[in-house]
Computed example of a mutant assay.
Amino acid sequence: METVLRAAGIYLVLLVVFRIAGRRALLQMTSFDLILLLIISEATQQALLGDDFSVTGAALTIITLIVLDIIFGFIKKRTRWADYMLDGSAVLLVEYGMPMEDKMKKTGITLDDIMVSARTSQGIDDLSMIKFAILEKNGHISVISRDTK
């Protein structure tokens, strides 16, 4: 039972921490982010398993985490409030070539982040050619170009 409680507790802690950290953390992974992810995974592993390194303990931990993920997925499908609280909503960052500074600051997205996404996804190198740039719930930036006609 202790293994299940440990897994559930760590799952909830990580859920809250990554929700607070925001989608900026999901947008790009720098070498610092990779190191941080490795450290978090090691700390999480120690917290999840404690002194129990048995196959049964590991299997029970994995099953608990997957069941929790399925439960939260089901709750998000049924309740808009839970979906918003857990995943947030899409945020409009650029509208008709005009950056929305307040929303960019709130989400931690820079104009450089938007332009990188515009160049790689649409081949756009000028802000005025962006009709909309949207920070999606999954942390990616969608760019919609203006009609060139």
Rank of each mutant, 00 (worst) to 15 (best):
E2A: 13
E2M: 15
T3K: 09
T3Q: 14
T3A: 09
L5I: 12
L5F: 13
A7T: 02
A7M: 09
A7C: 06
A7E: 05
A8H: 00
G9T: 14
G9L: 13
G9D: 07
Y11L: 09
L14C: 09
V16W: 01
V17P: 00
V17D: 01
V17L: 04
F18N: 05
R19L: 03
I20V: 10
I20E: 00
R23G: 12
R24H: 05
L26A: 09
Q28G: 05
M29P: 04
T30L: 08
S31I: 15
S31D: 11
F32M: 07
L34S: 03
L37E: 02
L37F: 10
I39R: 00
I40Y: 05
I40L: 13
E42K: 07
Q46N: 12
L48A: 11
L48V: 12
L49C: 05
L49M: 15
G50R: 08
D52H: 04
V55G: 06
T56E: 15
T56G: 07
A58R: 07
A58E: 11
A59T: 15
A59R: 03
T61M: 15
I62C: 10
I63Y: 06
T64G: 06
L65Q: 08
L68I: 11
I70Y: 07
I70K: 01
G73L: 01
K76L: 07
K76I: 09
K76T: 10
K77D: 03
T79K: 13
R80D: 09
A82Y: 09
A82M: 14
A82C: 14
A82G: 05
Y84K: 14
Y84G: 02
L86V: 15
D87N: 10
G88Q: 06
G88S: 03
S89P: 02
S89T: 14
L92P: 04
L93N: 08
M100T: 02
M100C: 03
E101G: 04
D102V: 11
K103R: 14
K103L: 12
M104G: 04
M104F: 08
K105Y: 05
K105L: 14
K105R: 13
T107V: 05
T107C: 11
I109S: 00
L111P: 01
D113E: 11
D113P: 11
V116H: 02
A118Y: 10
R119M: 13
R119W: 08
T120E: 14
T120A: 10
T120R: 10
I124Y: 04
D125G: 08
D125Q: 12
D125W: 06
D126R: 13
K131Q: 15
F132T: 11
A133Y: 06
I134T: 12
L135G: 02
E136R: 01
E136Y: 02
N138P: 02
G139V: 08
G139L: 12
S142C: 05
S142P: 13
I144D: 04
I144G: 00
I144P: 01
R146I: 10
T148V: 10
K149P: 10
